[in-house]
């Protein structure tokens, strides 16, 4: 590959926490190989590029763009469109870009409520004048502008076409490295790329497939939050009443959380063919509830008993849609600004 130009790599963070970048760097010494194989052309986290640099690249100049973060505001969307235009392969990298992740939980409430929580109703705030950011503000030096804060958080594929998706919050370093190897092979040796639209760095079955805990038939008479119970080692957490999203979540992380007694949070997203991970897990969880033989109970008693079990499941939206709200069928709450002014969407 002497005189051949190196493929160009970009990575961008939109509405995200930066964990995806850390995970890329967590591939360890392989990062040197990445540097060797790719030309970095845009990577705000580790190198100083400007958006204007990207704007000046010819269309399709970037070979691989790893886009992480959800689309929260107009700047996120603008950059997504720009990078799409300049990139041959656009990857939704990590849960935020893929399905909205934590930022998209704010779709359960309104833009006003979110701003109120951030600028007014927070014990650590001191904002007696209720100052809010403005999209445009006149200062002596001239006009300043800020991106527009959207009503709804969108996922990357709701804004631009996406070629591949890498799930995870964040994606696991081994998986990232494995994907990069495939991509490198494709660019340097002409090996085939995965089929367009593919989910990369994850398996085709649910997490339970790689979870070492022993499972039984499910019959849960109450649910526990993590601090309420010491899980019995070696035993399926869901069987013990600890909510574990494993059955509704793609494998690929080697069941890291359940291995240490923490229920799967569902960050690898739903299985192929599932439109709504939260709804799927809710219907599965509902199926595990055990209140004895319904034939022995009258309708009212049955309902009351089921309600009692359900009451041990706080914050269902945050539990079952923690990562997938933006991409779910549900999408969020219906905007009714006057009805939801107080923060909190649980």
């Amino acid at each position: 590959m002497e005189h051949k130009e190196k493929p160009k790599l970009a990575m961008y963070w939109a509405s995200s926490c930066g964990g995806c970048e850390i995970s890329v760097l967590n591939i360890g010494e392989h990062i040197l190989t990445v540097d060797q194989v790719f030309d970095l052309v845009f990577f705000p986290c580790i190198a100083d590029f400007k958006v204007s640099d990207v704007a000046n690249y010819p269309d399709g100049y970037i070979d691989l763009c790893l886009f992480n973060g959800a689309i929260r505001n107009s700047e996120n969307e603008e950059t997504a469109r720009l990078l799409r235009q300049k990139s041959k392969v656009m990857v939704a990298f990590g849960s935020c870009a893929y399905e909205g992740c934590i930022p998209a939980l704010s779709n359960l409430t309104s833009k006003q409520a979110t701003l109120a929580t951030v600028y007014d109703d927070n014990p650590s705030l001191d904002n007696p004048e209720h100052i809010r950011p403005l999209e445009e503000a006149e200062v002596p030096e001239g006009m300043l502008d800020l991106p527009e804060f959207y009503d709804r958080v969108k996922t990357l594929d709701q804004v631009v076409p996406v070629d591949y998706t890498i799930p995870g919050c964040p994606p696991e370093p081994e998986q990232i490295w494995a994907i990069l190897q495939v991509v490198v092979a494709a660019f340097t040796e002409g090996a085939p790329l995965p089929p367009p639209g593919a989910i990369l760095g994850a398996g085709d079955r649910a997490l339970c497939d790689e979870c070492p805990l022993a499972r039984e038939e499910k019959a849960v008479s109450r649910f526990y939050r993590p601090f309420e119970i010491d899980p019995e080692p070696g035993k399926c957490l869901l069987d013990q009443g600890i909510v574990c999203m494993g059955p509704a979540t793609r494998n690929g992380c080697k069941a890291l959380c359940p291995r240490v007694g923490m229920g799967c949070r569902g960050c690898y997203g739903p299985m192929e063919g599932v439109e709504d991970q939260g709804a799927k897990m809710l219907s599965a969880i509902a199926s595990t509830i055990d209140v004895g033989d319904p034939a022995d109970l009258d309708e009212e008693e049955l309902e009351r008993k089921i309600e009692e079990v359900v009451a041990t499941l706080p914050d269902p939206a945050g539990t079952f849609y923690r990562f997938s709200m933006g991409h779910s069928l549900l999408r969020g709450a219906r905007p009714e600004p006057e009805a939801v002014t107080e923060g909190g969407g649980s």
Binding site: D204, R205, A206, R215, E216, K218, P247, E272
Partner: peptide, 9 residues
């Protein structure tokens, strides 16, 4: 090929 043996069903 898609069943993970979660045993919900």
């Amino acid at each position: 090929d898609q069943c993970s043996g979660c045993r919900i069903c």
